[in-house]
């Protein structure tokens, strides 16, 4: 039986008159790796931001783990200028801030690495553990939650060991080499204890060897952390290698979906990537 972890229904995101994401319907199966690909400016990152709560969609619904985490319909100004393909407005308005969604079990990385630059590798990961803290501010300040604190430190240590960054634990995160910064960002996302991991172009700027290592790394953490992975990527080798399902986006619209083999041979995809041959 197929078990769906994340579902988007008719997600449409319009900025002013520009429809950045148009009628996006994605189903992400549990324990699988799903990829979202498309040329630059196709609306991939926007789709990510809608899913993680950074933007409110203009119309559409996002369901995560059988819970509606985001839903909206064209309101006030948007009502007049709404120009999405899917016209039927949704009914409810459900808003969740990104932090809430993270605590529900969805963690992300960023296209342009966003580490806590001045803090150490260890602190970067440790901070991500804060979101599940039980102790309040006073208990925490007066160190009355020793057990919890000790467990946070221990888990962080273990996680760093797992991803191979323990040797760099006290280095400033901005002083790490590029590949390790990417890895640290993933480790930090893992520290929030996600069910679904969203990776925004994890291989951007990597050479073939690093990309290959990354693809192994993603498969490895997927297994050991029981993750479902959803990624945006440009490196076709990586995508074809690790994905189970691929969605192709162009100008905000979904032009193809299916297994890597299906997508690779889809004429619409070839057209989007190679340009239209008028002749």
């Amino acid at each position: 039986m197929k078990e769906i972890l994340l579902k988007t229904e008719h997600i449409t995101m319009q900025f002013g008159g520009v429809v950045a994401v148009d009628d996006l319907n994605i189903e992400i199966e549990k324990d699988r790796i799903t990829a979202l690909i498309g040329p630059n400016g196709a609306g991939k990152t926007t789709a990510f931001n809608v899913i993680t709560g950074g933007y409110q969609p203009s119309n559409g619904r996002v369901t995560f783990d059988d819970l509606v985490i985001g839903e909206n319909y064209p309101r006030s100004k948007m009502k007049k200028i709404y120009n999405g393909t899917y016209k039927t407005p949704f009914e409810k308005q459900v808003v969740n801030t990104p932090d809430k969604i993270t605590r529900l079990g969805m963690a992300r990385t960023f296209q342009n690495i966003r580490l806590f630059k001045d803090l150490t590798v260890f602190e970067n990961v440790l901070i991500a553990k804060h979101c599940h803290i039980k102790a309040g501010l006073f208990r925490s300040t007066f160190m009355l939650n020793r057990e919890e604190e000790a467990k946070m430190l221990e888990d962080t240590e273990a996680l760093l060991e797992r991803v191979g960054l323990l040797a760099n634990r006290d280095e400033k995160s901005s002083s790490l080499p590029y590949g390790k910064q990417r890895r640290l960002e993933i480790a930090r996302a893992l520290a929030t204890g996600p069910k679904l991991l969203l990776l925004d172009e994890p291989a951007a700027g990597m050479n073939p060897k690093e990309t290959e290592e990354l693809s192994l790394f993603i498969k490895e953490i997927k297994e050991s952390f029981n993750l479902t992975v959803f990624l945006i990527e440009h490196h076709m080798n990586l995508v074809m290698d690790i994905s189970d399902t691929i969605y192709v986006l162009d100008y905000g619209k979904t032009i193809a979906q299916g297994t890597p083999a299906e997508v690779q041979n889809d004429p619409a995809v070839i057209r989007a990537y190679l340009g239209v041959d008028e002749a």
Partner: peptide
């Protein structure tokens, strides 16, 4: 832990929010 969260906000609000 709260102090560390403060520092995270100082470093990068968007990333801090994404970390819950």
């Amino acid at each position: 832990s709260y102090g560390r969260a403060f520092k995270a906000i100082r470093e990068d609000e968007i990333a801090a929010e994404a970390m819950g």
